[in-house]
Amino acid sequence: MHEAAGDHSQGVDMEIWDLHCHLNGVPGNTPEARLGRLLEYADRLGIARLCVFMGMEFTYDPSPERLKEENDSVLRAVRAFPNRAFGFVYLNPKHRQASLDELDRCVRDGPMVGVKLWVAEQCSSSDLDPIIERAAALQAIIFQHTWLKIAGNLPGESTPMELAELAIRHPHATLICGHSGGDWERGLRAIRPHRNIYADLAGGDPVAGLTEMAVRELGSERVLYGSDAGGRSFASQLAKVLGADVRDSDRQRILGGNLQRLLRPILAKKGITV
């Protein structure tokens, strides 16, 4: 029997950091207003910090101009709440130089701490290599959306298996498997051998067993809480951790400890103390 497994009877206090939030799907006409609303909901559930990426509306295959526009929205939002939110820069590997320029602008020279890659191009492509190399050099963590859909993925949508290929080429990069592949019973297996890939719990239904399998197969130090708010509910995603039959020490790592550990180097470089 786990210590306090699932009953939370020990009452461990923990600061919750949410890996995976968006401005899309939230009421408000400005980035600042939307992040403010997100934080109101986060406050009600005791979530301390949010990682935010992508703009006011989602774009599958953004042009360089669109990338800059979306990243500007995130910059505005996180600058309005510097003690509550971190930004990840949204990049498109099809536009290599523009992406490297955005990486420099928003992470090297700006306040952002991570990279977001979505569905413009499969992540096994060599187009990603210079982006991953530079992000790793900056100690930015790299969030790659993944899904395994039974009816077929979007044209540029990545799978956890493709992320595994990327991880082999870049063993020193910190890679996050978005949504644990959606079909997490297969996705977690695909990333299991690759120690530099971490599992994001966000964005799917709160199906019982997800967190337990992730902890069992990866170890809790490789599992990260995220919500995918505002399209998803903080509540449904937080429940995946608070309702799981895992040890409280595992829960603490997943809800914030792991993300704090992964971000500590880049935050230190930026002089940010948390």
Binding site: Y41, P206, A208, S233, F234, A235, A239, L242, G243, A244
Partner: peptide, 18 residues
Amino acid sequence: HAPMFYFESALLKLKESA
């Protein structure tokens, strides 16, 4: 939708909204 979903999901939804 328990036990297929984590029960806490529904519970926390009552808390997330004011």
